[in-house]
Simulated scan of single mutants.
Amino acid sequence: MMSSKFRSGKKWLSVFSVLIMVIAFGAVNADAGKIKMKFSHQNNVFDADQLLAETFKKIIEAKSNGEIKVTIYPGTLTNSEEEAIEFIKSGTLDISANSGGHIAGFYEDIQFLQLPYLFKSPEHYNVARQSGVVKQILKEVGDATGLIALGIYSDCNGFGIASTKPINSIEDAKGIKLRCMQNPLFIDVYNAFGFTVTPTDWGELYTSLQTGLVNANDLGCYCQYIFKLKEVVNSFAVLQQMWTQKILMMAPKTWAKLSPEQQELVRTVAREAIELTDAWQYTKEREFVEVAKKEGLTVTYPDTAPFKKASEKVYAKWFKDHPKWKTWYNEIQYLDPGARMPDASK
């Protein structure tokens, strides 16, 4: 006959098992209603892309009351930005930050925003980013890629030129082998400045600078530090020659899972994260120019007038091939706060 002690132990074991099942089922059930997003970017955890991803994650999870969960994959989930775009299209990824230069393979007009000296200052860029021109470009990016374009923000390319010898003027560009993104517009710009554009894979840039295969790159000063390139360059010329961009993209399959309210929330949070990231990027760039000076790197401020003059043939070529860019250009220039005054003040 079974003892009362054994029956009691068996009873408690059954109760415990039921509780475990209830908890497990509840956890699965609670998770089943959540939307999980994979957010990928190609850079390391010190980059602006990571700040944007972390900001988006924190705010969207809080404002959705945990109904939207975001996991960030910095620099590891895909082998290239082109692959990331294909992953988003297939729904393997949910959100990705992609350079305008890489998106050009899907939508060439994105390169308009990367014309040299298109934006005259950070203030001009911030105003123009809200313009009808940029909104039209974002819509057309979405149409061309089949993705949801959530917004646009600054990349670290184009703030200046880091090199193994000082650049004090446009004449110093001659003979310098410069690595830039292998994008036709970028190549035209730097050839016009007098550099010798030398193809080098991003992953080989450090070694290429170290061995002299290339002598310069066009990343901002902050990026020289976070990618450790400052170990193999000794000079930084502040030119602000281009305001290159990244586009925050979402998979249509993910977008379709969201309610209208969640879609609006995603757009709002993306805008907030982008505004913070852009402001942070400018702040870090200014901060690390000063850090570079203190650490003994040569920081120069060449006269940009000759660089702007050299850019004219780039404009002529690309305006000829893309006539609507001229209209866009005029609209963007009108929005420069540094050049506008009330009529009565003129």
Rank of each mutant, 00 (worst) to 15 (best):
M1Q: 02
S3M: 10
S3C: 08
G9K: 13
L13E: 01
S14C: 06
S14Q: 02
F16Y: 03
L19A: 08
I20Y: 00
M21V: 14
M21D: 01
A27K: 12
A27S: 11
V28D: 05
N29L: 12
N29K: 11
A30S: 06
A32D: 00
K36C: 09
M37L: 12
H41V: 06
N43R: 15
V45S: 07
A48Y: 14
T55N: 15
K57H: 01
K69S: 13
K69H: 15
A84V: 08
F87T: 10
K89H: 00
G91K: 03
T92S: 12
N98W: 10
N98V: 09
G101T: 08
A104W: 07
A104I: 00
I110P: 10
Q111F: 01
L115I: 03
Y117D: 04
K120G: 15
E123N: 04
V127R: 08
R129M: 07
Q136L: 00
E140N: 11
V141C: 11
G142R: 04
L147T: 06
I148R: 14
I148S: 08
I148D: 01
D155H: 15
N157K: 15
G158M: 13
G158K: 12
S163F: 14
E171W: 07
A173F: 04
G175F: 02
I176W: 00
C180I: 14
C180M: 10
M181T: 15
M181D: 08
N183Y: 14
L185P: 10
I187W: 05
I187R: 07
Y190C: 12
A192S: 07
F193G: 05
F193D: 06
F193R: 03
T200K: 12
E204Q: 10
E204N: 04
E204C: 06
Q210P: 02
A216D: 00
A216G: 02
L219W: 04
C223S: 10
Y225F: 12
Y225W: 08
F227M: 01
F227N: 08
F227C: 08
L229N: 08
W243P: 03
W243N: 01
I247L: 12
L248M: 06
M249N: 07
M250V: 03
P252E: 03
T254E: 01
T254D: 11
A256R: 05
E261F: 03
E264K: 13
R267A: 05
T268C: 02
A270M: 04
T277R: 00
D278K: 04
W280S: 07
W280I: 10
Q281C: 07
Y282F: 12
T283R: 04
K284H: 01
E287F: 03
V291P: 15
K293A: 09
G296F: 09
L297Q: 13
T298H: 01
V299K: 09
A305L: 08
E312V: 08
W318D: 07
P323R: 05
W325N: 02
W328L: 03
Y334N: 14
P337N: 05
G338K: 02
G338D: 09
A339Y: 02
A339L: 04
R340M: 15
R340A: 14
R340H: 10
M341I: 14
P342H: 05
A344C: 08
S345E: 08
K346A: 05
